[in-house]
Amino acid sequence: MLAFYGISPKIKFNMKKNNFFGMGFGLMIPVTTGIIPFGAVVGTLCSEAKFSFTQTMGMNFFVYAGAAQLAAIDLMTKNAIVWVVIATGLVINLRFLLYSAAMAPYLKNSGFLVKFISAHLLTDQSYAIMSANQDKLPTNKDAVQFNIGAAACMILVWQLSVLAGYTFGNFAPPSWSLDFGVPISFVALVLPTLKNKSYIVVAVFSAIISILLYSVPMRLGLILTAGLSILLAIYLTRKTAP
């Protein structure tokens, strides 16, 4: 008890002063405007495909990857072969390999459970907000807390959007263009990471290549663009190394 009374004010103080979980959660809120319409569409399509409530929320919780889910639902309603659906979804999700690599240095001293949760909750948005704010996160532990806070906000809004879409149909008014929230939130999140000219060159290259590769099937254009852009980064940073 003595230890409890002795330690608790300090813990409280630290939590208030350095609440990185809350900071991540709060900063994620505006970013989630972009995912609400996608969640609504996924929920609506699940209901139209006659998926049960358990199936819808099971897919949504265990796969938890909107773009892959959209592709999988579409293929399943067309009765595509099992492995074609799985392969398509996994190709779309290959980009998570990059986020896993980028998150690895922060998580190297974390326990199994924290690694497990952080990995399952990795999304484009949560990684992007983490990278945009990493200068404000002094230690790896702060970064991990920030990331879990942002990811918690993300999964909450996503599950609620899908649930609402499943129950009420496509509720997000198309005239509000909430889907535009995705590209513009990525604009706000990518700009702080462009620290010098070579980052800007890589970003412009990525934008151009993604447009050129847009019609490549199975959404391979995205991961190809990322791969080519990383190759460019390798080349640029080699050249400028002393």
Binding site: L98, A132, F186, L189, V190, Y199, V202, V204, S206, I230
Partner: peptide
């Protein structure tokens, strides 16, 4: 460089 490599592609 990962954000610069992938976010513009979205």
């Amino acid at each position: 460089y990962i954000p610069a490599a992938i976010l513009p592609a979205f």
